[in-house]
Amino acid sequence: QAPETKIVDKSRVACDGGEGALGHPRVWLQIPEDTGWVECPYCDCKYVLKGSKADAL
């Protein structure tokens, strides 16, 4: 199944896999201003900063 994409309001987000005990260790991710998105290294969930150029795609 394809990784999930989430639109977020802040450039710093936490990801834990979203499945409680079945998820992964919580990691904090920083969305770079130049790209407007970041992917979780564990679950490949893509976080897109709302209003960024990546959000316009």
Rank of each mutant, 00 (worst) to 15 (best):
C45E: 02
K53V: 12
C45M: 15
T35K: 08
R26C: 10
T35W: 05
C45A: 15
A56T: 14
V48R: 00
T35V: 13
Q30S: 10
G23E: 10
A54D: 06
D9N: 08
L29P: 01
R12M: 13
E33I: 12
S52R: 00
H24C: 02
K6C: 12
A21L: 11
R26G: 03
I7K: 06
P25C: 06
D16F: 10
T35M: 08
A21Q: 11
K46V: 14
Q1N: 11
G23A: 15
D16E: 12
R12K: 11
W28E: 03
W37I: 07
K10S: 14
A56K: 13
W37D: 04
E4R: 15
P41S: 05
G23Y: 07
P25D: 10
K50W: 06
S52T: 05
I31P: 05
W28A: 01
L49S: 05
V8F: 01
D16K: 07
L49K: 08
L57K: 05
V8L: 01
Q1K: 13
G20P: 04
L22R: 11
P32V: 06
V13M: 00
D9V: 09
Q30P: 02
R26D: 05
W37K: 04
S52F: 06
R12S: 11
T35E: 08
K53E: 08
K46E: 07
R26F: 06
K10T: 14
G36A: 02
K46I: 14
P32N: 08
C45F: 15
I7F: 11
C40Y: 05
I7C: 11
D44E: 13
D44N: 15
Q1C: 15
T5R: 01
K6Q: 11
A56Q: 14
L22N: 12
G17L: 01
P41T: 04
K46L: 09
K46R: 14
I31H: 05
A56V: 14
L49Q: 04
P32I: 07
Y47Q: 03
E39G: 10
Y47P: 05
K46A: 01
L22W: 06
D16C: 12
D44L: 15
A14K: 07
L22V: 08
V38W: 00
T35H: 08
D9R: 01
G17M: 03
G23P: 08
V13E: 07
Q1A: 12
K46G: 02
S11T: 13
P25G: 06
A21V: 11
C45L: 15
C43R: 01
S11E: 09
A54K: 05
T35Y: 06
G18Q: 08
H24P: 03
I31N: 00
L29E: 02
T5F: 15
P3L: 12
A2Q: 13
C43G: 03
A21S: 10
Y47M: 04
H24M: 02
E33N: 05
V8A: 04
W28K: 01
H24E: 04
E4H: 15
T5I: 15
C15M: 00
C45K: 15
S11I: 09
T5P: 13
D9P: 01
A54N: 06
G51N: 08
E33D: 07
G51M: 01
T35C: 04
W28C: 05
E39Q: 15
I31V: 02
D16S: 10
K53I: 12
G36D: 02
S52K: 01
V38I: 13
K50A: 12
G36K: 01
G17N: 02
S11A: 13
C15Q: 00
P25I: 12
